[in-house]
């Protein structure tokens, strides 16, 4: 089923016209066919990653990729690092905790420093919305957004779309419920953009204190009742609830959140019988999701999402460095 969803190359404009961006700062800049193009490219990397012991390609040999993470991350950083290394690039990680950012250096100065080191691609995570765009405007190499504030996390949305497409055979015409802390979530924003763009019915399900203002203007339906929001959904996408939201400011307690919005086996029955359950991780088991749901052998896609993450990031690194590598048609 999976490989049949790959479109033939002739479906896309030739060369660089298939993906007309220097950077990947957000889903907001992409067209539906550009999203499909990345997903199709990622499928090939899925095959290679699964093929055997030798998961290596030398496409990006000699290129330097800097992962500049100004906010703590384990899995996204690891995923980008593995993606870069599997493509043969030299990957360097910069952690904010060890960097001069803590000594008062401005973000622009840090960006100029990275630029002067002649990186061939920079992957950035930052706690402030718009920080990645700010850096992208100042450096000469492609910049990939690995999450900026509450704004966007485009590779997460792409890997989620790929996971859905592989499980459902398509990623259009589906009913997808995004549940949890939508207000503070860049994962939610990027997924809303990508999934509505691809032609799905997207719902957001959250307590009223965690729904962003005017979110209906992003073409989603809003539910504050979890059971209603899950009705007949094809995909249930859970969001992580940050611990600091549970202290009374936004929610009374973790216990109450679980009672009203936790994904239990019983609640999941409201969705379609073959509905899949997604989570970007790391999970708060027993808060937003029950272990029996998270570990469900057929419905949970949580580990598959991690696998798709590596493939999607390989595809993005490959595509965005093609100009630099002089790939014919990309200039």
């Amino acid at each position: 089923m999976t490989s049949s969803t790959i479109r033939p190359a002739s479906d896309y404009p030739p060369g660089g016209d298939a993906f007309r961006h220097r950077h990947l700062t957000g889903i907001a800049q992409l067209t539906p066919w550009e999203i499909s193009y990345v997903l199709d490219a990622a499928e090939e990397w899925v095959e290679m990653n699964r093929a055997g012991a030798a998961k290596h390609d030398d496409k990006l040999a000699g290129l330097t990729i800097i992962n500049a993470f100004f906010e703590n991350s384990t899995r996204t950083l690891l995923s980008f690092e593995i993606a870069g290394k599997r493509l043969g690039a030299d990957v360097v990680n910069m952690h904010a905790a060890q960097s001069s950012v803590k000594k008062g250096e401005t973000l622009i100065d840090t960006a100029m420093t990275l630029n002067a080191m002649r990186a061939d691609a920079i992957v950035i995570r930052h706690a402030s919305s718009g920080a990645v765009q700010l850096i992208a405007d100042k450096v000469d190499c492609p910049v990939l957004n690995a999450g900026d504030g509450r704004h966007e996390h485009p590779t997460q949305a792409l890997l989620d779309a790929l996971t859905i497409r592989r499980r459902k055979g398509k990623v259009e015409g589906l009913t997808i419920a995004i549940c949890g802390d939508v207000l503070h979530s860049r994962v939610a924003r990027s997924n809303i953009l990508a999934l509505t763009l691809l032609g799905n019915e997207v719902r957001v399900v959250a307590p009223p204190t965690l729904i962003p203002p005017a979110i209906d203007r992003m073409h989603v339906r809003v539910f504050t009742d979890m059971d209603e929001g899950l009705n007949d959904a094809d995909v249930v996408m859970m969001l992580r609830l940050q611990n600091e939201r549970m202290d009374g400011a936004y929610l009374p307690s973790a216990r109450e959140y679980h009672a009203l919005y936790g994904l239990t086996p019983k609640r999941l029955e409201r969705a379609k019988p073959d509905a899949i359950v997604m989570h970007p991780g790391p999970m708060n088991r027993g808060v937003e999701i029950d272990s029996s749901v998270a570990d469900h052998p057929t419905r949970s896609t949580i580990t598959e999402q991690v696998e798709m993450g590596v493939a999607v990031r390989m595809a993005c690194l490959d595509i965005l460095t093609r100009r630099k590598r002089g790939v014919p048609g990309w200039n």
Partner: peptide, 15 residues
């Protein structure tokens, strides 16, 4: 200010 722009940009906003 609360609204579509603040939400799309992921900026904390007030009514």
């Amino acid at each position: 200010t609360d609204g579509e722009m603040a939400t799309r940009l992921g900026l904390a906003s007030a009514p």
